[in-house]
Write a protein that binds this DNA or RNA. Structure first.
Length: 287
DNA sequence: AAGAGGCCCTGATAGC
DNA sequence: TGCTATCAGGGCCTCT
């Protein structure tokens, strides 16, 4: 569920809390994430200083001095928690189990800094860490990913040339990270609603105006989601345990059977499987 | 080569 | 109450 906006929220709060801090210790409780945590993970991080926390697409990038990097992808259920030593002492002394911020189970990785620690929690273990040894490898890692919606490279010309000769529906393309990166199932649904487009429509049959709407609305929806602290469906929280608010703005996602929110539209939101992903759309205005 | 489908995993929920 | 089935979905992999 963490898509670009949620990852950005995590990045922002992490960058405030751990920038310029040095890793003192790393605790790994479970190496079996989506990809097995490398054997040298702990020694690679230990002693290194964070100089910035960046993001590309749905990847967090911990940047260290000397051109070293560590990627973190949150998969579907990954959350990052930052907790100070003081908060931690209070928790253990009083009601650890009633803590609103820190989960008890599935805290697989802890990265410990002076006075605080970063805890990676992930029930489904679809998330992963990756060590990157120089900026060239970092570039390579992202080479096959498409631009983010915000980038100028995501423009009409690019879309036309990418879609040429391909035969998929538009929703699949929005989910295709090689076409445009950062959009997941929730935001793909929302973006297509704002474009008034049928998710099942073949992408190369769309009009010039539709492509422009897609560019505009993917930027609009994602930036509004970021402004609202991301979306919390079930378990997304920022590093302080605060929930997102953008789910209140959803027009179609998880609204099956409900009335379309567009002014004067009498449509009913439909739910349909498109390539194994639940897809929500209005049966009147999205045609 | 493009596209479809399977797989990894756990927790919540529905149905019996 | 307790069992089983189903669903959620990001990215990588395999098969056609």
């Amino acid at each position: 569920m963490p898509e670009l906006p949620e990852v950005e929220i995590v990045r922002q709060s992490l960058n405030k809390k751990i920038n310029q801090k040095k890793v003192i210790k790393v605790i790994v409780r479970n190496r079996n994430l989506r990809f097995k945590l490398p054997i040298n993970f702990e020694t690679f991080l230990k002693g290194r200083k964070i100089i910035e926390v960046k993001r590309f697409s749905k990847y967090l990038i911990f940047c260290f001095s000397n051109d070293k990097y560590c990627l973190l992808h949150l998969g579907m259920s990954g959350t990052v928690h930052v907790i100070t030593d003081n908060q931690r002492n209070l928790l253990t002394n009083t009601s650890f189990y009633n803590s609103p911020t820190l989960p008890i189970k599935h805290n697989h990785v802890e990265i410990i800094f002076k006075n605080l620690r970063v805890i990676y929690n992930d029930p489904r273990r679809f998330g992963f860490f990756q060590i990157i040894n120089d900026s060239l490898s970092l570039k390579k890692k992202f080479a096959n990913l498409g631009p983010e919606p915000f980038q100028t490279e995501f423009n009409y010309k690019y879309i036309i040339s990418f879609l040429k000769g391909k035969n998929k529906n538009i929703k699949n393309f929005l989910l295709d990270q090689n076409f445009v990166s950062g959009i997941g199932n929730i935001y793909a649904n929302e973006i297509l609603f704002h474009c008034k487009l049928d998710p099942n429509k073949k992408a190369d049959s769309l009009k010039k105006d539709d492509y422009k709407k897609i560019i505009l609305n993917s930027r609009k929806v994602l930036s509004k989601a970021i402004k609202n602290g991301g979306s919390t469906i079930k378990d997304f929280k920022n590093t302080s345990g605060k929930r997102g608010r953008f789910q209140k703005n959803f027009k179609v996602y998880e609204r099956k059977g409900q009335l379309c929110k567009r002014l004067n539209c009498k449509g009913i939101i439909q739910k349909k499987e498109i390539s194994n992903r639940s897809t929500f759309f209005c049966n009147i205005c999205q045609i």
